[in-house]
Computed example of a mutant assay.
Amino acid sequence: MRARNILCSALVSGLATVGLALPAAAIDTSARAALVLDVNTGTVLLSKNADVPLPPASMSKLMTLYMLFEALETTDLTLDSEFRVSEKAWRMGGSKMFLEVGKTVRVEDLIMGVIVHSGNDACVVIAENLAGSEAAFADRMTKKGRDLGLKASTFANSTGWPHPDQRMSAQDLVLLANLLVRDFPDLYPYFAETSFTWNGITQENRNPLLYLNLGADGLKTGHTEEAGYGLVASAERDDRRVTLMISGLDSSSDRRNESERLLNWAFRDFSERALFEADETIAVADLWIGTEGQVELVADGPVRVMVPYGVDEVTAEVRYRGPIEAPVEAGQQLATLEIGIEGQDPVRVPLLARDTVERGGFTARLAAAAATLRDRVFPPVATQ
């Protein structure tokens, strides 16, 4: 006996499917790749080549910092711990913190050197002291990235130095940025620092949004000839956070202007729409061979989306393959709520079983077998 493999798609009551012209809030970008995300609701406001692995330049230093921050949280490493500077680190070209070979430097100073100075020398010091070599550290970065869900990311170094195996997507960079905000609330404020002096040399943070009074509090710029000018940024206004990534711009001024334009648009042209409250039943799913024939589906918290001003309707569909074979556990994901907003990527929300439903006894299995046999002998007739 087996469950019938049917793709079920139910339109949620109260939300209508309508044909809409592209809303006035729709926007394009000159960036080669871009992603703008409303973090609180998970709504993608803009997506362009967001899943394409691209050279990330110094934006990949965010992964180096994630590895260091995690070590600070999980080992005996402290901000006052000191790392020794190797000749390899000292010889690094590009953006530098101007470390001196053979000297030691505090971990906190290295953090500032990476964030503010974008120091390639600082990244190599971190890599060598945490993993023994930069190559070993890059391998750890790739493995950790997989654990974090960075599906398109591979790392060949700790700095973002051009290499064919150094790749990240806009989706991965935005996800990583939000993980830094969420996982390290005590360390994330370093990203808002605008200047840092080391060895008598003061350098300014290259993140242009930090100086524009837009609520920006991070994260990292990047530039190589191959990658163009890019930025991963996050900003918070009135308890609403927006994270964006752009890359492939032609100049630093283009990067500043485009990131400012997109950030203002994201905060200005959208309003939050509450669709379902926490613990509200969104749909019911049919069960097979269970003590109950159906189970209620709920989301893990309230369901809210950001909708462009001027758009009145959104669509929502519950998708699952069913009937679902019992038993099911309370909290088990059984379906997905797919929310459609004209001009935006769908928002997908996992739907969970509200209650546990045990597998049925002999009578339930006999009834299921009879239903399966009936459908094989007398298949359903489509009607209109």
Rank of each mutant, 00 (worst) to 15 (best):
I6P: 09
S30A: 15
V39A: 13
T41H: 05
L46R: 07
S47I: 06
A50P: 01
D51M: 06
P56Y: 08
A57Y: 02
A57Q: 06
F69P: 11
F69I: 09
A71V: 07
L72E: 01
S86N: 06
S95L: 02
M97N: 05
M112S: 14
M112C: 14
V114F: 01
I115P: 00
I115Q: 01
H117Q: 15
I126L: 10
G132S: 12
A135C: 01
M141C: 09
K144Y: 04
G149W: 09
L150N: 04
A152T: 12
S158P: 05
H163M: 05
V174W: 09
L176K: 07
A177V: 08
L179G: 05
V181L: 15
R182C: 08
N199V: 04
Q203V: 13
Q203D: 06
R206F: 02
P208I: 12
P208V: 10
G215C: 10
K220R: 11
G228R: 06
L231K: 09
S234M: 05
A235L: 04
D239C: 09
R240L: 03
S253R: 14
N264D: 09
R273S: 08
A278P: 00
E280M: 09
T281Y: 00
D286H: 07
G290S: 01
E292S: 12
Q294A: 11
E296N: 12
L297N: 04
R319I: 14
G331T: 11
I341A: 08
G343W: 01
P350D: 07
G360V: 00
A367R: 15
A369Y: 10
T372N: 13
R374I: 02
D375S: 15
